[in-house]
């Protein structure tokens, strides 16, 4: 008769924050090289978003666009819907809203490109660190909204190559996701793997996947990435082979097992240096003999 009073949302209520890679170069390059085009991509992703909302009345979807110069929220299923003109009978409202906001976003992203005057072609990586941070901010707000909130997770749909200059910011975002127990799922849609996302998923316990058949993207999304966190404890999902956390030295890019680490900035070197090339700290050891002896014993760089 009276339903059992549930104190919390049932475990499968999800908040999925989807990060869309909107790097124009990625999509124009793929347009010529492969058969998987941006409209197809959109079709797959929009169907996926719709599916998530469909699965549970309380499910929530947030879309963030990862542009070249900026990122922004594109869609939030929990936001009160404004009266909008019914644009097309051909597609659901969700779709037309996402598309319209996406168009707006591209415009503003392009404008900031111009104002920045940056040579984009040199580094055509999108601003993953920015959109990860936006996603985490949103999730933090949800966490603080009260005891009753859906279980959040992040899904990165990334195709651009990693931007090495974002390293620190991305890693920070990953660790903060780890701390707040938010899994980062990664679906790589570009030509190459992403070391960032591989680490992100590994560290946060998400799924990393680079679909071999992009025209079946929706199938990947629905089979793997639509799985709510509750069900994940009962299911076997593709596991990464394991991340090789061995580092290579900053000086020669050699993979090393033992080396010298700057005690200030954690840069790694295979040989003893007088000065850290990354942060400029001076390693204070005048006597090289003694220094060698000391490092032999301690096996790490001397204090600054």
């Amino acid at each position: 008769m009276a339903s059992v009073p549930s104190k919390l949302y049932s475990d499968d209520v999800s908040l999925v924050v989807v990060l869309l890679d909107t790097n124009p170069f990625l999509w124009t390059a793929t347009a010529t090289a492969t058969t998987f085009t941006f409209p197809e991509f959109l079709a797959h992703v929009l169907s996926f978003l719709n599916s998530i909302i469909l699965l549970n009345q309380l499910n929530q979807v947030v879309v963030i666009a990862t542009g070249l110069n900026s990122c922004d929220y594109i869609f939030d299923s929990s936001a009160p819907s404004k009266v909008e003109p019914f644009e097309s009978a051909r597609m659901p409202l969700l779709y037309s809203r996402v598309l319209r906001r996406l168009e707006d976003f591209l415009g503003s992203d392009e404008r900031s490109e111009r104002s920045n005057g940056a040579a984009a072609a040199a580094a055509p990586s999108s601003l993953l660190s920015g959109s990860l941070s936006l996603a985490l901010c949103y999730i933090q707000r949800v966490f603080r909204s009260g005891a009753l909130h859906p279980q959040p997770r992040i899904l990165c749909l990334q195709g651009s190559p990693d931007g090495p200059e974002q390293y620190v910011a991305v890693m920070n975002a990953i660790f903060s996701a780890q701390r707040s127990m938010v899994p980062i799922d990664s679906c790589v849609i570009g030509a190459q793997h992403s070391a960032f996302l591989q680490q992100a998923s590994y560290i946060t316990g998400g799924v990393y996947l680079k679909p071999p058949m992009l025209d079946g993207l929706f199938q990947y999304l629905s089979t793997i990435f639509a799985t709510d966190l509750h069900s994940r404890s009962f299911l076997q999902l593709p596991k990464p082979v394991g991340v090789d956390f061995r580092a290579s030295c900053f000086c020669h890019k050699k993979t090393i097992d033992m080396g010298y680490i700057c005690s200030v900035c954690l840069s790694i070197f295979c040989k003893h240096h007088k000065k850290c090339s990354t942060c400029g700290s001076v390693f204070g050891q005048a006597n090289p003999e003694a220094a060698a002896a000391a490092t032999d014993r301690k096996r790490k760089a001397p204090e600054v």
Partner: peptide, 25 residues
Amino acid sequence: LCIKDPREYFDSQQLNALKTLGDTV
């Protein structure tokens, strides 16, 4: 703390990471 080029950190890890994924690039 002034880090001249954070890219170096990335380079120091990316190589091995991608290797395990079987990327030849």
